[in-house]
Design a protein around this nucleic acid. Structure first.
Lengths: 212, 212
DNA sequence: CCTAATATGTGAATGAATGAACACACTTTG
DNA sequence: CAAAGTGTGTTCATTCATTCACATATTAGG
């Protein structure tokens, strides 16, 4: 049931993690079955959207019954490959980078920051929460084999060069907090987390709402 | 020229900050005019989309000429109300909260975290970078008049209660890093920043790309 | 001043995502 | 085992967003 029978839409893909998390939480609370409309209340997504999303991964539910929570955890877990650990490298141990290491996606044991890089001599060869920090210049030597995922928390000005070097070292998935868009290889997938933009557009919406 | 002649689409709203930032950067570099296709290269948004977005705020450009950078800075600045400072309160001074205070949107002088709250006695009545930290229990007394914006960086489990109290204290715009969705007043605008979901869906896309 | 070149703003076409509604399959109960 | 109830998966309609393509307005140059 792993394969998508039809092309999965971008919007659906961005909701998979929400579904997985909700299913996990229900399982932890001992809930064994759930209806789409109940799920809709919990995660604030319309039940029709939920059913459509689910159906794009196969027939997960049963008419007149609903969905088995265990099935949802299983299926979405497989989609997100939670069974095989995803080792992650962090670039840039400033305030944000350090906070990410401390956090380290603890709720998701499969997501694991295993090593960090920085260019500040004061930080190099230290560690945070057991995660070693190396010089970014040594990226190629220090990057563990089989790691293809990076989180980038460096100043915008360094971003382009950093990402180029990551690509050269074999990284193919990048989440970055610097909003400066960069050109990358077609095989590389980049997601930009732009907190300033998020806040500004939130404020725009909020201001509009007040005016109305 | 401030008012939108027609309803501005949600997708467009989320791009306003990108346009503003790009215009600012060009102005700082002394660039005085720009064409939509040049802008498209810079911010990686198709030129047709840019022109349509811009046109929803009035006729900012001139045929055969392009856009005046100064006009763009001016117009988008007004849309984002950069002339009137937006004071922000931060709830939750953990690793992430502290990093946000240190950062404090320095590139945008109108965005300003002015005070923080936590419930950890070890942090209360201390300060970071001059930003005082008070007890969250004292929110109502300590919240400066006229502040309607909050950034929430507390554990998911506390989120619901925290947001309810923020609403009671007059906050109407909230950006939060806990993904647990909460019910809120219709006058409140909430934006969820869900780093785990972003990473998971990024990885899903990246894995699909490798398979193809 | 007139012509050639240019680049916007928009109507029309396409594509993506959501929403409404229901036939049918499965469950449950008596 | 039959009948009543329930909730999925899907079809059709609609809204939202992007892309195309060009008439039109402006600039630039001789």
């Amino acid at each position: 049931m792993l394969d998508a029978k039809t092309k999965v839409s971008k919007a659906t893909i961005r909701r998979i993690p929400l579904y997985y998390r909700a299913a996990q939480q229900m399982q932890q609370r001992g809930i064994r079955r759930v209806r789409s409309d109940k799920l809709a209340e919990i995660i604030h997504i319309p039940s029709a959207t939920i059913r459509r999303d689910f159906s794009s991964f196969g027939e997960l539910g049963k008419s007149g019954y609903g969905y088995s929570v265990a099935t949802l955890v299983e299926e979405f877990g497989q989609l997100l490959q939670v069974q095989s650990p995803e080792d992650i490298v962090l670039i840039g141990v400033g305030g944000l980078g350090a906070a990410l290491i401390e956090n380290n996606f603890r709720r998701n044991p499969d997501l694991d920051i295993v090593v960090a890089f920085d260019h500040d001599p004061a930080k190099i060869n230290t560690s945070i929460d057991g995660i070693p920090i190396y010089s970014f210049a040594d990226l190629k030597q220090r990057l563990p084999k089989g790691v293809h995922t990076a989180i980038v928390a460096v100043p915008s000005s360094s971003q382009e060069s950093v990402i180029a070097q990551l690509e050269a070292a074999g990284i193919t998935a990048i989440m970055t907090f610097a909003p400066q868009p960069v050109a990358c290889k077609p095989t590389t997938t980049i997601r930009y987390i732009d907190l300033t933009s998020e806040l500004q557009s939130l404020l725009y919406v909020a201001h509009q709402k007040q005016k109305a």
